[in-house]
Design a protein around this nucleic acid. Structure first.
Lengths: 207, 207
DNA sequence: TTATGTGAAGAGTTTCACAGCA
DNA sequence: TGCTGTGAAACTCTTCACATAA
């Protein structure tokens, strides 16, 4: 076991390990080796073992890893053994698509999108994939009432930083941002940005 | 100038520099320092200069960088000084949202989405944001005819690898993948995966 | 005997600091 | 003098290889 801070790259690989273990049927083969797991996720056995070593003992030497207990361990580490309430700001095309996508793919996932926010009166009060759209003016109070800890940002506005600041002040701990802007958050808050335009532009280099 | 292979991390930052330079008005101030640019994109001046140093001389020592000529240089490096034809497979919610998003955000961008592909008869022949939906059976011939070099993957199917292989054989050089699967591509092809479910799960760790 | 867990080596990336040019 | 361009140092992440435990 390695008690120093776990690198973000490692944290980002854990859900991939978990997903792979969830696809496997432990009744068929209850145990898997780092080599087999690595092959399935497309990495090396050394990396799998190194990643897991940050969190203590998982497997049996000379044997391998028990699929069922490893799943539970990974869920515990990732805090996916408890419900996490998620909000989404910007109920436009992309926002709606993401909600539907998430609802479809959330097989035993404790990440629950509980509120959407928008400025558009025509959208407020409606539901998208069973999730209500709230007035963004009520952002702060609803974050607190519903105990929202994670926020997805999919709105095309200029005042994103301001909205992010309100979220943080209201208790949001992490953001998945699809808005093409550079945002500042304090160290204890995690921000991940997915910028499709930048991705496409950088891919052009390899064309 | 540094003639060794440019790291992918560097390539991924270039579009961010470019975007920032495109927002600035060169009539106001035609020159920018690495320090100012760094502040705008949220990095350090050293990193800006180091990144640019992979591609030769850009600026004037003691002065800074000319905004207009730096834009042109960056566009040339990223191959954004020529039209690049892009396809998208999977004209569902997410696919349609991405097309609309791209059309809206593509201010002087030479990345043009020229074809959508789907298996659904009801969608084939229709247009989404002015782009025609084609039968996925015609994938190979249309990639060749329209000279598509980049492909966006947003379909929920099991045979993604097979489809990717067809694309590569037909001339596609890079992929932006939103399908939650591990894909294999040869070294000369660039694959970037954006997996919203994995992103959210890894963010849970920081909650 | 087999496959884990982990230090140590290696590779990759960022930061630093300063020489050099306008 | 001011800011770039860039080696070198510092840091981070990955790979390697082997002691260790079942």
């Amino acid at each position: 076991m390695n008690q120093r801070k776990v690198p973000d790259v490692v944290i980002r690989r854990l859900p991939l390990y978990l997903r792979t273990l969830e696809i496997l049927d432990p009744d068929e083969a209850p145990i898997i080796s780092s080599e087999q797991l690595a092959k399935l996720v497309g990495t090396s056995s050394g990396q799998v073992r190194k990643d897991l070593s940050y969190f203590g003992v998982f497997g049996k030497q000379g044997v391998g890893y028990q699929i069922i207990s490893m799943r539970m361990e990974l869920r515990r580490i990732l805090k996916l053994d408890q419900e996490i309430r998620v909000g989404l700001i910007g109920a436009g095309n992309l926002g709606a698509a993401l909600v539907r996508y998430h609802q479809k793919n959330r097989v035993h996932q404790p990440l629950e999108i509980v509120a959407l926010f928008d400025v558009d009166d025509k959208k407020i009060g409606r539901k998208i994939a069973d999730v209500e759209v709230f007035d963004i003016g009520k952002l702060s109070s609803i974050i607190r009432n519903l105990d929202i800890k994670m926020m997805i940002l999919t709105f095309p506005a200029a005042n994103v930083q301001q909205v992010v600041d309100i979220c943080i002040a209201s208790g949001v701990k992490s953001f998945l941002n699809f808005v093409p802007v550079s945002l500042k958050v304090p160290a204890e808050v995690k921000l991940r940005t997915s910028d499709v335009t930048l991705e496409l532009q950088s891919l052009a280099y390899y064309t």
